[in-house]
Design a protein around this nucleic acid. Structure first.
Lengths: 252, 252
DNA sequence: AAATTAAATTCCGTTGAATGGAACGTAAGG
DNA sequence: CCTTACGTTCCATTCAACGGAATTTAATTT
């Protein structure tokens, strides 16, 4: 009658080994055998064997003096790789290539950096006439589709700081009004805005904590962004950015 | 007759799970089931089960689209803790307390930061008259026991840069000559050097790659550092620093 | 110095957890 | 359409993992 089943426990031994790893926290970085055995409610003999295996693989280290255990360099190494493969760029690249092939236009990935956005990844368009930004280039947040989406999802205080950079009163008024709409629709677009002759659409990328620190954009020459095409592109970037957000661990 | 035994293989299932984690590298951050199964030479059914367990614990993530696996956020989290508990400060603290109780003098931990040393941890001496540096304080590398040990183990190019900071020619000559001796003995000492009335001894802490990025020092008023005591303290810091180095993973 | 306590390690007979081959489902490509 | 490749599910078999008990080691008290 007892439903001891822990939701969905996997392979028992592996599960136990993982439970041990999760015993360690920032507050308790060092644990003795007995402490660990108690935490995972297992006999010390079993725990010793599990720990020995983890130690052989450098996932934990045993201090030969105190006999206490800490998480080991192996985890540090794996964590580093995990961090890398969780980076937006890594995740975004395949999606960006797909969008580029679909739209034949240039696809850019921007990340927020202080009071500007920086292009960190790019898939060049397939047509001779391309819209191009250099990787590493810094652009303002108060103009262009990419800048506007990033801005739209920041705190009011942050937005105020950026508003101070806007050159004319008219632009500022237009921008402020637009941000609301962008948040509602989840996309921004710009035609002949930052540069005459260029158009773009952009959508926000949410990280696991629901913050917007990056965005995806599709851009090209204005004449290829007629209203109907622009509408289609808007849907496309939005879907692309959503796909990336989900892969980053964001659950709406 | 076959000695299939892999050196010392631990619990089979756990070992296999760990082998999976180590399949991922910076070059290959994404792997399919078949790729993983091939790498660890196991049937796909077994591999699936292992991966499922790892996934439930967020040590890997499966991309629902491509069905490929990456290392997960759980490893990122654990790696962060592992990193923290590998930090010199964490490791050093208990050793420092022991030395303080043994010597009754103030024990400091300095780390190299650019062209100076910074005090990052301290155990105050037990006597009314103490030698005190504030945590976070930046001190030069060309004076004081701590500065000199740190300097002694850096590259010649680095040392030259520091030499330029030394105010008088005589001090420079003395310093340059001393570094050699410090490296040989593995300890530095200073009496009325950086501050009149204060004395100190210091020894290098080696990280896992054999580099010296930190040092341990014992310091107090000169009158309590008579030659015989100083000699004893030198042995004490040296042993303390060695203990820390070993816990950091340094093997001489 | 002996006695007591607590923690870590080793041993070994028992059992069910993990295994892997085969069958099944699904998607891509010729 | 058939073929190929990949991922998933099933189930009877077996040996790997288990845990209670015995042993060793270290620290603490009497």
């Amino acid at each position: 009658m007892k439903e001891e089943k822990k939701h969905e426990a996997g392979l028992r031994t592996v599960q136990r080994a993982i439970d041990i790893l999760y015993c360690f926290t920032l507050e308790e970085q060092e644990l003795s055998l007995t402490e660990i055995a108690k935490k995972i409610s297992l006999p010390k003999s079993t725990t010793t064997r599990l720990l020995a295996t983890l130690e052989q693989n450098r996932l934990v280290v045993k201090d030969p003096e105190t006999l206490k255990y800490r998480l080991g360099q192996g985890l540090y190494y794996l964590g580093y790789i995990a961090g890398k493969s969780m980076e937006v760029r890594e995740i975004a690249r395949p999606v960006m290539e797909r969008l580029r092939d679909e739209t034949r236009e240039t696809v850019n990935l921007y990340v927020l950096e202080q009071d500007a956005r920086v292009c960190v990844e790019q898939c060049e368009g397939l047509q001779a006439l391309r819209h191009m930004v250099r990787i590493g280039e810094r652009l303002p947040l108060w103009a262009g589709a990419g800048g506007k989406v990033l801005l739209a999802y920041q705190s009011p205080a942050f937005q105020e700081r950026i508003f101070a950079q806007v050159p004319t009163k008219e632009r500022l008024a237009r921008l402020a009004a637009e941000l609301e709409v962008i948040r509602e629709r989840g996309v921004a677009s710009s035609v002949d805005e930052r540069e005459v002759g260029s158009a773009a659409v952009a959508a926000p990328i949410f990280n696991i904590r629901g913050e917007v620190r990056a965005c995806l954009s599709i851009s090209g020459p204005t004449h290829r962004f007629a209203p109907d095409v622009l509408g289609k592109f808007e849907t496309t970037v939005k879907e692309g950015a959503q796909a990336i957000s989900e892969k980053l661990g964001y659950r709406p």
